[in-house]
Amino acid sequence: MYTIEFQKRGLPHAHFLIILMDGYNLLTPQAYDKIVCAQLPDPYIDHHLYKLVTKHMIHSPGHDKIAFSVHNNDTNVEIDEIKEYQFARWVSPQEAAWRLFAFSINEMTPTVCQLQLHLDGQQFVSFENNQTVDQIINNPMIRKTMLTEFFLMNKINNDAINLNILHKEFPQHFVWSSSYKIWSHRKQHLTVGRIVTCHPTEGERYYLRLLLMNVRGPKSYEDLRTMDGRCYSTFREATEKRGLLHSDNNLIECMSEVVSYQMPYS
């Protein structure tokens, strides 16, 4: 994972987050010093390079926000003192050129797929300004989400049925099409799934998330609420019957994921 940054006078530089395999982790400052070096060129040996580095690559603490004013030379025009001052972001020539050429600003590997979390019929709906209420309601696509189609795949797709996996594991094997609102088989690229976070005060939505994190291959909301052949009326009841509220399993899973992926889901 990396991101490109610029200072007001500076050249582009990158911030990297690199996760090493077990056995290669750097645990002491001395270990970092062996592979990371940050020093200025000698001003006597390479004076020209020293001037370039100190001019373009060293900056004092600050930010890229500026305030500027717009004046009207016509003294007869009344000036609005509020609108006169503008607040904007300062973009250096280097950053402007970087963006004009559409160079990459950041990248993350593996890709993280954010999985939607919503109760039945409570998903977000996008629509055009010129659409009527009837057109929106009668559009079957608004009822299709990553979650509802995950349930459907566990009903009709043999591979999904045989895999019998959790919702967060689904993007490792299938890819979501936001245009057609369907899951299809993944052919390349590693992707990590993460269900959006949810606070316990959100009630049923929080308990739905707990169930999705622990129940494999659910086929519907009702299936998630079913335990030992009985369908409970709320997700909270279902989580209680599964023992998810009487232990620290969710905390243990979170910390276990930190160890394995170093990318916690909550």
Results as ranks from 00 to 15, higher is better:
residue 13 H to G: 04
residue 16 F to T: 01
residue 21 M to L: 06
residue 23 G to Q: 09
residue 30 Q to M: 08
residue 34 K to S: 11
residue 38 A to P: 02
residue 43 P to E: 08
residue 48 H to S: 06
residue 58 I to Q: 08
residue 64 D to V: 04
residue 70 V to I: 12
residue 72 N to F: 12
residue 75 T to D: 13
residue 77 V to T: 10
residue 80 D to L: 10
residue 84 E to W: 00
residue 85 Y to D: 02
residue 90 W to I: 01
residue 92 S to H: 13
residue 94 Q to G: 05
residue 96 A to G: 02
residue 96 A to M: 12
residue 97 A to Q: 15
residue 104 S to G: 07
residue 126 S to L: 06
residue 129 N to I: 00
residue 130 N to D: 15
residue 130 N to G: 06
residue 131 Q to S: 13
residue 133 V to D: 14
residue 142 I to T: 12
residue 143 R to G: 04
residue 144 K to L: 15
residue 147 L to S: 05
residue 147 L to T: 03
residue 148 T to H: 08
residue 150 F to N: 02
residue 151 F to L: 00
residue 152 L to P: 04
residue 158 N to A: 08
residue 160 A to K: 06
residue 160 A to C: 07
residue 169 E to F: 06
residue 169 E to A: 12
residue 171 P to K: 09
residue 173 H to C: 13
residue 176 W to G: 02
residue 181 K to M: 07
residue 182 I to T: 09
residue 186 R to G: 05
residue 188 Q to E: 11
residue 189 H to V: 12
residue 190 L to K: 11
residue 192 V to N: 03
residue 194 R to Q: 10
residue 197 T to V: 01
residue 200 P to N: 07
residue 212 L to H: 00
residue 217 G to A: 13
residue 220 S to A: 14
residue 221 Y to M: 10
residue 222 E to Y: 13
residue 232 Y to K: 00
residue 234 T to Q: 11
residue 238 A to E: 04
residue 242 R to G: 07
residue 246 H to P: 01
residue 247 S to C: 13
residue 252 I to Y: 10
residue 253 E to V: 00
residue 253 E to W: 01
residue 262 Q to E: 08
residue 264 P to D: 01
residue 265 Y to R: 11
